[in-house]
């Protein structure tokens, strides 16, 4: 289980399109937005990988000037069997 909240700063004139794009993302909710383009967003999803991807995607939405994480909580539940892979280390003096 992963729960995150973010503050997204959109260019004020793009507020509605950014909001719409966010609403389309699974597990993502927009809780509120201000006139100055600031938005309170949460992600609630069992997969850590999904959350990480979602945050990157959010920052790339057209009209988003900055996206900042506020809170993140992560707990391994029996239901989340996200396979744990890691970066391979290559030991080779010639590569």
């Amino acid at each position: 289980m992963t729960i995150c909240s973010l503050v997204i700063q959109a260019k004020p004139q793009h507020l509605s399109t950014v909001s719409a794009s966010l609403h389309e993302m699974q597990g993502v909710e927009v809780h509120m937005q201000g006139e100055n383009g600031k938005m309170v967003v949460s992600i609630d999803h069992p997969s850590r990988e999904y959350c990480s991807d979602a945050m990157t995607k959010m920052s790339q939405i057209n009209g988003v000037m900055s996206s900042s994480l506020v809170f993140e909580y992560q707990e391994e539940l029996e239901a989340d069997q996200t396979p744990q892979e890691q970066a391979p280390i290559i030991l080779s003096q010639s590569s």
């Binding site: 729960i3 995150c4 909240s5 973010l6 503050v7 809780h31 509120m32 201000g34 600031k38 938005m39 309170v40 967003v41 949460s42 900042s68 506020v70 809170f71 993140e72 909580y73």
Partner: peptide
């Protein structure tokens, strides 16, 4: 989480 983000924003 939401309260924290709202306060920050």
């Amino acid at each position: 989480a939401i309260a924290a983000a709202a306060a920050t924003a």
